[in-house]
Design a protein around this nucleic acid. Structure first.
Lengths: 206, 206, 206, 206
DNA sequence: AATGAATGAGAGTTCATTCAT
DNA sequence: AATGAATGAACTCTCATTCAT
């Protein structure tokens, strides 16, 4: 899942030894946080899984919180970038929203661990960092809301539902994916994405 | 240490002095879990808030987990009962689903604390208890799904979306209420419920 | 719930309901102390096993220590009485010592639980009670030593070994029975007693 | 390696300031366990006596149990080695058994604390560790039994007593030393050892 | 004679973090 | 860049005992 890989050619591509130390730490922390929750995962477990020592971890990250924050920052950055790309393609509005909705489902499922952590552990971050994360997230939601508002103004979408309520409605569904979707189930990520996009679009028919 | 409860007649029946010891414990635990998360709330804080000693808490509850479990059990029981009531009223299917959907939003908002806890802390329960909670929850979802399947069979609802995907879609939205809805905002619980029900019903139009 | 006592003849001699409350408590405490050690056995466990409540226990016994003390007092009393009986029978000295040695083995095996507790838990008694128990035990050892000294004076036994060392040597073996003897093994209690008596007597040959 | 010790030059190199942290912990734990019993000794007391913090203790030992286990393992190892040495010397069998018996007394007295703990606290070890200790102890007993069986086969010793009963008889006496022998009494360890060996050997005369 | 709610002290253990090297 | 010993505070939970009823 995490790319993590040997930036320098020539680095030993061993089994549990790939990637730089910070990258390895982030990747194992992500897995453990998703599996056991932030508070239930000890720094000791993380460094053991990553095959480094505590000292090394504290060399790269100021605290356990920092690890979590980095995970959030990365997933938010990636999803925002993805949304930006889709939102500006040259296509009718309904198609752009459909693509955005489906994409967010696919990318959420692609990094399901990160998203589980998001749902469960965000409130365990320090107040300050929580604020930063929320702000970033709001920007993301707002970009999505803009699409809806555009459609309501143009008559493509019904206007009798507040756009931000619709956004929260839809993202609730998306964030909930982590608690039911299993790889290897009967639906691919894209199929779920298309279903979700359909449901959203149809509920917005004028 | 803390004398605690209303020994004197006339003690203020205010915020933290009413009810039996176990009830007081549950109520304060609920508030604290919702605010800080299960792991971040210490037993010490709970008993201090409830005005009892640790010993008293362990007299009534076998563990901190038990407290959480009781909270879950109660909210699930209440919501299941509520759904049962609405599901069997004598009305057309679309109206019954609308009522059920709106009601679940209203009751979720009514006990927003319990539901926040549900979303954030369920995975911190012991495996065994988690299983019990999940089983109960599944029953609840299944009752809801039955309504949708009925409508798909009768032609009231579109049949090209798996009913359980629709259920997960909708309950995702519902469980997410805790992270954006604030009492005192511009919408009442019922208004949100009606909007959500509308969105659901419209997305199911054949 | 607990009917308890049936002290009067005619009371149902049920399975876990026989005997007076204090007797039941002592009997269950003995079993539990032997199995898990004094400190590892909680008052709660004892009263549950005996089918009474804590209050009832504290009605009859001043403390958990008291329970242990009563067990000791009983076993010491019984063994001392038994030794007194054998020591004064009308028989040659060698026979009297043989009988006493064999008997102490048999009676130790007969109440193996009590003797295990003796070995493991005596030092957990309060200083005062420990003193009382030790004094009683010393009296017991002294009675035994007197027999040996008699024989050393009369020339029946070798005189080059201090009599109290011999007593400690022998009682060490006896107290150790609890850690190897199992009912249902290949030797009866009496057989072990006779072997032990033989070994003792032969080691004392002049 | 360990910070802890003798920070000031001139600190008394007396009782509690010498050796590495784990060694100091073991040594103080031994004294305390012998004096008060395992369960009655708190981790707090041990670390205070050793002049370290709890954290340091848990850095070296996984649990309080571990401390006890290390004490057992050490004493067993030492005694087994000692017995091995004596059992193979080039001397008649009776002399070898005499030497072994006397030596085991001397070495038991030399580490009387460890042996008291053995007698009183072994059953407080986890089931798994208890098994390991018992297995090691059995090996030790078996080595001793072999000597006796050799003598029974060669006619040096009487054959009408089961060899393992004799072993249990003798080791009972040895394990009991802790409850009566006091340094500074009238007998040296070697004198007690020789007396015990005599008694054993004479009881085995054919 | 007996209950059971409540106490309060202390148990063993975990943990994020620091710091000399 | 990295180690790992050590800290110190906090954690959940247990327990013998008391006392109003």
């Amino acid at each position: 899942m995490t790319r993590a890989n040997a930036r320098k050619p020539g680095a030993a591509p061993g089994a549990d030894d790939q990637g730089s130390v910070p990258r390895r730490l982030l990747s194992h922390a992500t897995k453990l946080f998703a599996k056991k929750g932030f508070d239930r995962t000890s720094v000791q477990e993380i460094v053991e899984a990553a095959g480094v020592t505590k000292g090394a971890m504290y060399h790269y990250f100021g605290s356990k919180d920092d690890l979590l924050y980095e995970i959030y920052a990365r997933v938010l950055r990636e999803q925002t970038e993805q949304l930006e790309k889709v939102a500006v393609i040259d296509a009718p509005l309904r198609e752009r929203l459909t693509a955005a909705a489906s994409d967010v489902v696919v990318s959420t499922i692609a990094s399901l661990d990160d998203n589980k952590i998001f749902a469960q552990s965000m409130h365990q971050l320090s107040a300050e960092k929580q604020k930063a994360v929320r702000a970033e997230r709001r920007k993301y939601h707002e970009r999505f809301r803009t699409l809806i508002e555009e459609g309501q103004a143009s008559g493509d979408f019904r206007a009798d539902k507040p756009a931000d309520l619709v956004v929260d409605f839809f993202f609730g569904s998306v964030h909930h994916l982590g608690s039911w979707y299993h790889r290897g189930g009967s639906l691919t990520a894209r199929q779920v994405g298309d279903h979700y996009a359909d449901l959203l679009l149809d509920s917005l028919r004028p």
